[in-house]
Design a protein around this nucleic acid. Structure first.
Lengths: 183, 183
DNA sequence: TCCCATGGCGAACGACCGTTCAGCCGGGAG
DNA sequence: CTCCCGGCTGAACGGTCGTTCGCCATGGGA
Protein backbone atom coordinates (compact mmCIF):
# COMPACT_ATOMS: atom_id res chain seq x y z
CA UNK A 1 0.00 0.00 0.00
CA UNK A 2 1.50 3.20 -1.29
CA UNK A 3 0.04 5.44 1.42
CA UNK A 4 1.52 3.29 4.17
CA UNK A 5 4.93 3.37 2.48
CA UNK A 6 5.00 7.16 2.53
CA UNK A 7 3.79 7.48 6.10
CA UNK A 8 5.97 4.72 7.56
CA UNK A 9 8.99 6.28 5.84
CA UNK A 10 8.18 9.76 7.14
CA UNK A 11 7.06 9.12 10.70
CA UNK A 12 8.06 5.52 11.37
CA UNK A 13 5.93 2.46 11.99
CA UNK A 14 5.04 3.31 15.58
CA UNK A 15 4.51 6.97 14.70
CA UNK A 16 1.91 6.15 12.06
CA UNK A 17 -1.61 5.19 13.08
CA UNK A 18 -4.14 3.26 11.04
CA UNK A 19 -6.25 6.43 11.18
CA UNK A 20 -3.39 8.35 9.51
CA UNK A 21 -3.14 5.81 6.71
CA UNK A 22 -6.89 5.75 6.21
CA UNK A 23 -7.21 9.52 6.11
CA UNK A 24 -4.49 9.71 3.44
CA UNK A 25 -6.87 7.54 1.38
CA UNK A 26 -10.01 9.50 2.20
CA UNK A 27 -11.32 6.73 4.44
CA UNK A 28 -11.72 5.84 8.11
CA UNK A 29 -9.53 3.33 9.89
CA UNK A 30 -11.99 0.42 10.13
CA UNK A 31 -12.40 0.37 6.35
CA UNK A 32 -8.78 -0.66 5.97
CA UNK A 33 -9.57 -4.01 7.54
CA UNK A 34 -11.60 -4.95 4.50
CA UNK A 35 -8.31 -5.07 2.57
CA UNK A 36 -5.71 -6.27 5.07
CA UNK A 37 -5.26 -8.40 8.15
CA UNK A 38 -3.36 -6.02 10.44
CA UNK A 39 -0.89 -3.15 10.56
CA UNK A 40 1.92 -5.62 11.17
CA UNK A 41 1.05 -7.44 7.94
CA UNK A 42 1.59 -4.19 6.05
CA UNK A 43 5.08 -3.81 7.49
CA UNK A 44 6.02 -7.41 6.80
CA UNK A 45 4.85 -7.21 3.19
CA UNK A 46 6.82 -4.02 2.63
CA UNK A 47 10.06 -5.25 4.20
CA UNK A 48 10.13 -8.73 2.73
CA UNK A 49 9.30 -7.54 -0.77
CA UNK A 50 11.92 -4.78 -0.51
CA UNK A 51 14.77 -7.08 0.49
CA UNK A 52 13.82 -9.65 -2.12
CA UNK A 53 13.67 -7.05 -4.89
CA UNK A 54 17.01 -5.56 -3.91
CA UNK A 55 18.62 -8.97 -3.80
CA UNK A 56 17.12 -9.93 -7.17
CA UNK A 57 18.52 -6.75 -8.77
CA UNK A 58 21.88 -7.54 -7.21
CA UNK A 59 22.01 -11.09 -8.57
CA UNK A 60 20.97 -9.92 -12.01
CA UNK A 61 23.72 -7.28 -11.94
CA UNK A 62 26.61 -9.60 -11.11
CA UNK A 63 25.35 -12.26 -13.52
CA UNK A 64 25.97 -10.00 -16.51
CA UNK A 65 29.75 -10.38 -16.52
CA UNK A 66 32.55 -12.61 -15.29
CA UNK A 67 35.10 -9.86 -14.78
CA UNK A 68 35.24 -9.37 -11.04
CA UNK A 69 35.94 -5.64 -11.15
CA UNK A 70 33.05 -5.14 -13.51
CA UNK A 71 30.87 -7.26 -11.21
CA UNK A 72 31.72 -5.02 -8.29
CA UNK A 73 30.98 -1.89 -10.29
CA UNK A 74 27.66 -3.22 -11.50
CA UNK A 75 26.69 -4.46 -8.04
CA UNK A 76 27.30 -0.97 -6.69
CA UNK A 77 25.38 0.61 -9.55
CA UNK A 78 22.40 -1.67 -8.90
CA UNK A 79 22.65 -0.96 -5.16
CA UNK A 80 22.70 2.78 -5.72
CA UNK A 81 19.90 2.74 -8.30
CA UNK A 82 17.66 0.74 -6.01
CA UNK A 83 18.26 3.12 -3.11
CA UNK A 84 17.67 6.18 -5.31
CA UNK A 85 14.46 4.75 -6.77
CA UNK A 86 12.96 3.32 -3.61
CA UNK A 87 14.00 5.60 -0.78
CA UNK A 88 10.86 5.03 1.24
CA UNK A 89 11.18 1.26 1.17
CA UNK A 90 14.86 1.40 2.10
CA UNK A 91 14.30 3.81 4.97
CA UNK A 92 11.65 1.56 6.42
CA UNK A 93 13.82 -1.48 5.84
CA UNK A 94 16.68 0.01 7.80
CA UNK A 95 14.71 1.59 10.62
CA UNK A 96 11.94 -0.85 11.45
CA UNK A 97 13.52 -4.28 11.81
CA UNK A 98 12.92 -4.12 15.53
CA UNK A 99 9.22 -3.58 14.99
CA UNK A 100 8.93 -6.68 12.82
CA UNK A 101 7.46 -9.63 14.65
CA UNK A 102 8.88 -13.11 14.33
CA UNK A 103 9.29 -15.06 12.17
CA UNK A 104 9.34 -12.27 9.60
CA UNK A 105 12.18 -10.49 11.42
CA UNK A 106 14.46 -13.50 11.13
CA UNK A 107 13.61 -13.92 7.47
CA UNK A 108 14.60 -10.33 6.75
CA UNK A 109 17.79 -10.67 8.79
CA UNK A 110 18.71 -13.78 6.84
CA UNK A 111 18.12 -12.01 3.53
CA UNK A 112 20.36 -9.18 4.69
CA UNK A 113 23.08 -11.58 5.76
CA UNK A 114 22.93 -13.37 2.42
CA UNK A 115 23.09 -10.06 0.60
CA UNK A 116 26.16 -8.94 2.56
CA UNK A 117 27.79 -12.34 2.01
CA UNK A 118 27.33 -12.05 -1.74
CA UNK A 119 29.21 -8.75 -1.71
CA UNK A 120 32.02 -10.27 0.32
CA UNK A 121 32.24 -13.17 -2.11
CA UNK A 122 32.80 -10.77 -4.99
CA UNK A 123 35.46 -8.84 -3.10
CA UNK A 124 37.19 -12.01 -1.88
CA UNK A 125 37.34 -13.32 -5.41
CA UNK A 126 38.83 -10.04 -6.60
CA UNK A 127 41.49 -10.30 -3.92
CA UNK A 128 42.22 -13.94 -4.82
CA UNK A 129 42.64 -13.00 -8.46
CA UNK A 130 45.02 -10.23 -7.50
CA UNK A 131 42.72 -7.58 -8.92
CA UNK A 132 41.68 -6.01 -5.61
CA UNK A 133 43.76 -4.93 -2.68
CA UNK A 134 42.30 -4.24 0.75
CA UNK A 135 43.27 -4.83 4.36
CA UNK A 136 39.83 -6.26 5.14
CA UNK A 137 37.38 -7.48 2.53
CA UNK A 138 34.69 -7.59 5.18
CA UNK A 139 35.12 -3.95 6.18
CA UNK A 140 35.24 -2.93 2.55
CA UNK A 141 31.92 -4.66 1.89
CA UNK A 142 30.31 -3.07 4.94
CA UNK A 143 31.53 0.33 3.82
CA UNK A 144 30.14 -0.13 0.32
CA UNK A 145 26.75 -1.28 1.54
CA UNK A 146 26.50 1.60 3.97
CA UNK A 147 27.56 4.18 1.38
CA UNK A 148 24.50 3.33 -0.67
CA UNK A 149 22.06 3.46 2.21
CA UNK A 150 22.78 7.11 2.84
CA UNK A 151 21.55 7.93 -0.65
CA UNK A 152 17.98 7.15 0.35
CA UNK A 153 18.19 9.97 2.88
CA UNK A 154 19.10 12.84 0.60
CA UNK A 155 18.62 11.89 -3.03
CA UNK A 156 15.53 13.07 -4.84
CA UNK A 157 14.71 12.89 -8.50
CA UNK A 158 15.47 16.10 -10.31
CA UNK A 159 18.36 17.06 -8.03
CA UNK A 160 21.74 18.22 -9.28
CA UNK A 161 22.83 14.68 -10.10
CA UNK A 162 20.93 12.24 -12.25
CA UNK A 163 20.46 8.68 -11.07
CA UNK A 164 22.91 7.48 -13.73
CA UNK A 165 25.61 9.94 -12.67
CA UNK A 166 25.10 8.83 -9.09
CA UNK A 167 25.42 5.18 -10.07
CA UNK A 168 28.58 5.86 -12.06
CA UNK A 169 30.29 7.88 -9.33
CA UNK A 170 29.49 5.35 -6.64
CA UNK A 171 30.65 2.49 -8.88
CA UNK A 172 33.86 4.41 -9.25
CA UNK A 173 34.20 4.84 -5.49
CA UNK A 174 33.61 1.14 -4.90
CA UNK A 175 36.51 0.28 -7.19
CA UNK A 176 38.73 2.87 -5.51
CA UNK A 177 37.95 1.37 -2.12
CA UNK A 178 39.65 -1.84 -3.19
CA UNK A 179 42.28 -0.09 -5.35
CA UNK A 180 41.06 -1.76 -8.53
CA UNK A 181 41.65 -0.61 -12.09
CA UNK A 182 38.26 -0.14 -13.72
CA UNK A 183 37.48 -3.40 -15.54
CA UNK B 1 20.31 8.97 31.64
CA UNK B 2 22.04 5.73 30.85
CA UNK B 3 18.94 3.55 31.04
CA UNK B 4 17.11 5.73 28.55
CA UNK B 5 20.07 5.58 26.16
CA UNK B 6 19.98 1.81 26.08
CA UNK B 7 16.22 1.55 25.68
CA UNK B 8 15.86 4.32 23.08
CA UNK B 9 18.65 2.69 21.08
CA UNK B 10 17.09 -0.76 21.27
CA UNK B 11 13.39 -0.06 20.81
CA UNK B 12 13.25 3.52 19.59
CA UNK B 13 11.86 6.63 21.26
CA UNK B 14 8.21 5.84 20.56
CA UNK B 15 8.72 2.17 21.41
CA UNK B 16 10.04 2.99 24.88
CA UNK B 17 7.65 4.01 27.64
CA UNK B 18 8.47 5.91 30.79
CA UNK B 19 7.38 2.78 32.66
CA UNK B 20 10.07 0.81 30.76
CA UNK B 21 12.77 3.28 31.71
CA UNK B 22 11.65 3.38 35.33
CA UNK B 23 11.53 -0.39 35.65
CA UNK B 24 15.09 -0.65 34.32
CA UNK B 25 16.00 1.52 37.33
CA UNK B 26 13.87 -0.41 39.84
CA UNK B 27 11.37 2.43 40.09
CA UNK B 28 7.90 3.39 38.92
CA UNK B 29 7.25 5.89 36.17
CA UNK B 30 6.09 8.85 38.30
CA UNK B 31 9.37 8.80 40.22
CA UNK B 32 11.22 9.82 37.09
CA UNK B 33 9.53 13.20 37.17
CA UNK B 34 11.50 14.09 40.27
CA UNK B 35 14.60 14.18 38.07
CA UNK B 36 13.43 15.39 34.68
CA UNK B 37 10.85 17.55 32.97
CA UNK B 38 9.53 15.18 30.33
CA UNK B 39 10.39 12.29 28.02
CA UNK B 40 11.05 14.74 25.21
CA UNK B 41 13.67 16.51 27.34
CA UNK B 42 15.56 13.23 27.65
CA UNK B 43 15.69 12.83 23.89
CA UNK B 44 16.78 16.42 23.32
CA UNK B 45 19.57 16.17 25.88
CA UNK B 46 20.85 12.95 24.33
CA UNK B 47 20.80 14.16 20.75
CA UNK B 48 22.22 17.63 21.29
CA UNK B 49 25.02 16.39 23.49
CA UNK B 50 25.86 13.62 21.03
CA UNK B 51 26.17 15.90 18.02
CA UNK B 52 28.18 18.45 19.96
CA UNK B 53 30.60 15.83 21.27
CA UNK B 54 31.08 14.30 17.84
CA UNK B 55 31.70 17.71 16.32
CA UNK B 56 34.15 18.63 19.07
CA UNK B 57 36.13 15.43 18.50
CA UNK B 58 36.16 16.20 14.80
CA UNK B 59 37.47 19.73 15.22
CA UNK B 60 40.15 18.54 17.61
CA UNK B 61 41.21 15.86 15.11
CA UNK B 62 41.69 18.17 12.13
CA UNK B 63 43.38 20.82 14.25
CA UNK B 64 46.33 18.52 14.99
CA UNK B 65 47.94 18.88 11.57
CA UNK B 66 48.01 21.07 8.49
CA UNK B 67 48.61 18.29 5.99
CA UNK B 68 45.25 17.84 4.29
CA UNK B 69 45.61 14.09 3.73
CA UNK B 70 46.51 13.60 7.36
CA UNK B 71 43.55 15.76 8.35
CA UNK B 72 41.23 13.54 6.34
CA UNK B 73 42.68 10.41 7.89
CA UNK B 74 42.40 11.76 11.41
CA UNK B 75 38.88 13.04 10.81
CA UNK B 76 37.87 9.56 9.70
CA UNK B 77 39.62 7.98 12.67
CA UNK B 78 37.82 10.29 15.08
CA UNK B 79 34.53 9.63 13.29
CA UNK B 80 35.00 5.87 13.50
CA UNK B 81 36.16 5.92 17.11
CA UNK B 82 33.16 7.97 18.18
CA UNK B 83 30.75 5.62 16.44
CA UNK B 84 32.44 2.56 17.90
CA UNK B 85 32.45 4.00 21.42
CA UNK B 86 28.97 5.49 21.44
CA UNK B 87 26.81 3.22 19.32
CA UNK B 88 23.66 3.86 21.32
CA UNK B 89 23.91 7.62 21.03
CA UNK B 90 24.61 7.45 17.32
CA UNK B 91 21.74 5.09 16.62
CA UNK B 92 19.34 7.38 18.41
CA UNK B 93 20.83 10.38 16.66
CA UNK B 94 20.22 8.89 13.25
CA UNK B 95 16.81 7.36 13.87
CA UNK B 96 14.95 9.85 16.01
CA UNK B 97 15.32 13.27 14.42
CA UNK B 98 11.70 13.17 13.39
CA UNK B 99 10.62 12.67 16.99
CA UNK B 100 12.54 15.75 18.14
CA UNK B 101 10.31 18.74 18.70
CA UNK B 102 11.24 22.20 17.54
CA UNK B 103 13.42 24.12 18.05
CA UNK B 104 15.73 21.27 19.08
CA UNK B 105 15.23 19.49 15.77
CA UNK B 106 16.48 22.47 13.80
CA UNK B 107 19.47 22.85 16.10
CA UNK B 108 20.47 19.23 15.52
CA UNK B 109 19.96 19.56 11.78
CA UNK B 110 22.16 22.64 11.73
CA UNK B 111 24.90 20.83 13.66
CA UNK B 112 24.74 17.98 11.16
CA UNK B 113 24.92 20.38 8.24
CA UNK B 114 27.94 22.11 9.75
CA UNK B 115 29.62 18.79 10.39
CA UNK B 116 29.10 17.65 6.79
CA UNK B 117 30.33 21.01 5.53
CA UNK B 118 33.52 20.68 7.51
CA UNK B 119 34.25 17.36 5.83
CA UNK B 120 33.60 18.88 2.43
CA UNK B 121 35.95 21.74 3.22
CA UNK B 122 38.77 19.30 3.94
CA UNK B 123 38.13 17.37 0.74
CA UNK B 124 37.82 20.51 -1.35
CA UNK B 125 41.11 21.79 -0.03
CA UNK B 126 42.74 18.47 -0.85
CA UNK B 127 41.44 18.74 -4.39
CA UNK B 128 42.61 22.34 -4.69
CA UNK B 129 46.09 21.37 -3.53
CA UNK B 130 46.17 18.58 -6.08
CA UNK B 131 46.45 15.94 -3.36
CA UNK B 132 43.00 14.42 -3.82
CA UNK B 133 41.22 13.34 -6.94
CA UNK B 134 37.47 12.71 -7.02
CA UNK B 135 34.63 13.33 -9.46
CA UNK B 136 32.49 14.79 -6.67
CA UNK B 137 33.82 16.03 -3.34
CA UNK B 138 30.29 16.19 -2.03
CA UNK B 139 29.53 12.56 -2.81
CA UNK B 140 32.86 11.51 -1.38
CA UNK B 141 32.08 13.27 1.88
CA UNK B 142 28.61 11.73 2.08
CA UNK B 143 30.09 8.30 1.48
CA UNK B 144 32.69 8.76 4.21
CA UNK B 145 30.17 9.96 6.76
CA UNK B 146 27.82 7.12 5.97
CA UNK B 147 30.58 4.49 6.14
CA UNK B 148 31.16 5.36 9.76
CA UNK B 149 27.52 5.29 10.75
CA UNK B 150 27.21 1.62 9.87
CA UNK B 151 29.83 0.80 12.46
CA UNK B 152 27.44 1.64 15.26
CA UNK B 153 25.19 -1.16 14.03
CA UNK B 154 27.61 -4.07 14.18
CA UNK B 155 30.72 -3.16 16.15
CA UNK B 156 31.02 -4.29 19.72
CA UNK B 157 34.00 -4.14 22.01
CA UNK B 158 35.92 -7.36 22.11
CA UNK B 159 35.04 -8.38 18.56
CA UNK B 160 37.57 -9.58 16.01
CA UNK B 161 38.83 -6.08 15.34
CA UNK B 162 40.00 -3.63 17.94
CA UNK B 163 38.83 -0.05 17.84
CA UNK B 164 42.28 1.10 16.73
CA UNK B 165 42.42 -1.37 13.87
CA UNK B 166 38.99 -0.23 12.81
CA UNK B 167 40.05 3.40 12.90
CA UNK B 168 43.19 2.69 10.89
CA UNK B 169 41.41 0.67 8.21
CA UNK B 170 38.66 3.23 7.77
CA UNK B 171 41.19 6.04 7.63
CA UNK B 172 42.87 4.07 4.89
CA UNK B 173 39.61 3.68 3.01
CA UNK B 174 38.86 7.39 3.26
CA UNK B 175 42.17 8.19 1.58
CA UNK B 176 41.56 5.60 -1.12
CA UNK B 177 38.18 7.13 -1.85
CA UNK B 178 39.90 10.30 -2.96
CA UNK B 179 42.93 8.49 -4.42
CA UNK B 180 45.33 10.15 -2.00
CA UNK B 181 48.80 8.97 -1.02
CA UNK B 182 48.81 8.50 2.73
CA UNK B 183 50.17 11.74 4.23
C1' DT C 1 -37.81 -5.92 -9.41
C1' DC C 2 -35.57 -8.19 -5.82
C1' DC C 3 -31.36 -10.10 -3.51
C1' DC C 4 -27.16 -10.32 -1.87
C1' DA C 5 -22.31 -9.47 -1.63
C1' DT C 6 -19.02 -5.77 -1.01
C1' DG C 7 -17.08 -2.34 1.37
C1' DG C 8 -17.34 1.94 4.08
C1' DC C 9 -18.90 3.62 8.53
C1' DG C 10 -19.84 5.17 13.74
C1' DA C 11 -19.35 3.41 18.05
C1' DA C 12 -17.02 1.05 21.12
C1' DC C 13 -13.54 -2.33 23.23
C1' DG C 14 -9.47 -2.92 26.22
C1' DA C 15 -4.79 -1.66 26.43
C1' DC C 16 -1.33 1.48 27.04
C1' DC C 17 0.58 6.11 26.78
C1' DG C 18 2.75 10.57 29.22
C1' DT C 19 1.84 13.03 32.99
C1' DT C 20 -0.30 14.91 37.56
C1' DC C 21 -1.22 14.74 42.30
C1' DA C 22 -1.86 13.81 47.03
C1' DG C 23 0.04 11.08 50.39
C1' DC C 24 3.56 8.25 52.58
C1' DC C 25 8.08 7.03 54.32
C1' DG C 26 12.88 7.47 56.09
C1' DG C 27 16.49 10.04 57.70
C1' DG C 28 19.12 14.34 58.74
C1' DA C 29 18.78 18.95 61.33
C1' DG C 30 17.40 21.31 65.39
C1' DC D 1 12.35 13.42 70.17
C1' DT D 2 10.31 16.19 66.74
C1' DC D 3 9.93 18.26 62.45
C1' DC D 4 10.50 18.67 57.82
C1' DC D 5 11.62 17.65 53.28
C1' DG D 6 13.29 15.04 49.13
C1' DG D 7 11.93 11.27 46.70
C1' DC D 8 9.15 7.19 45.75
C1' DT D 9 4.41 5.62 45.29
C1' DG D 10 -0.62 4.18 43.81
C1' DA D 11 -4.33 6.00 41.71
C1' DA D 12 -6.06 8.35 38.28
C1' DC D 13 -6.46 11.80 34.30
C1' DG D 14 -7.44 12.41 29.32
C1' DG D 15 -5.88 10.83 25.17
C1' DT D 16 -4.61 7.62 21.42
C1' DC D 17 -3.78 3.18 19.80
C1' DG D 18 -5.13 -1.32 16.94
C1' DT D 19 -8.94 -3.75 16.22
C1' DT D 20 -13.98 -5.56 16.30
C1' DC D 21 -18.74 -5.33 15.36
C1' DG D 22 -23.21 -4.43 13.63
C1' DC D 23 -25.26 -1.43 10.47
C1' DC D 24 -26.01 0.65 6.16
C1' DA D 25 -25.67 2.20 1.25
C1' DT D 26 -24.77 0.64 -3.24
C1' DG D 27 -24.92 -1.61 -7.43
C1' DG D 28 -24.53 -5.76 -10.43
C1' DG D 29 -26.81 -10.50 -11.36
C1' DA D 30 -30.99 -13.24 -11.52
Amino acid sequence: MDAALTLFAERGYLGTSMRDIASQLGMRAPSLYNHLESKQELLQDIMLRTMEDLFADHRAAIATTNDVAEQLRRAMEAHVRYHARHPREVRIGNAEIWNLEQPAQDRVRKLRRDYARSWQDVINRGVDEGRFQTPSPQLASYAMLEMGIGISLWYHEGGRLSESQLAYYYGDMALRLVSAESG
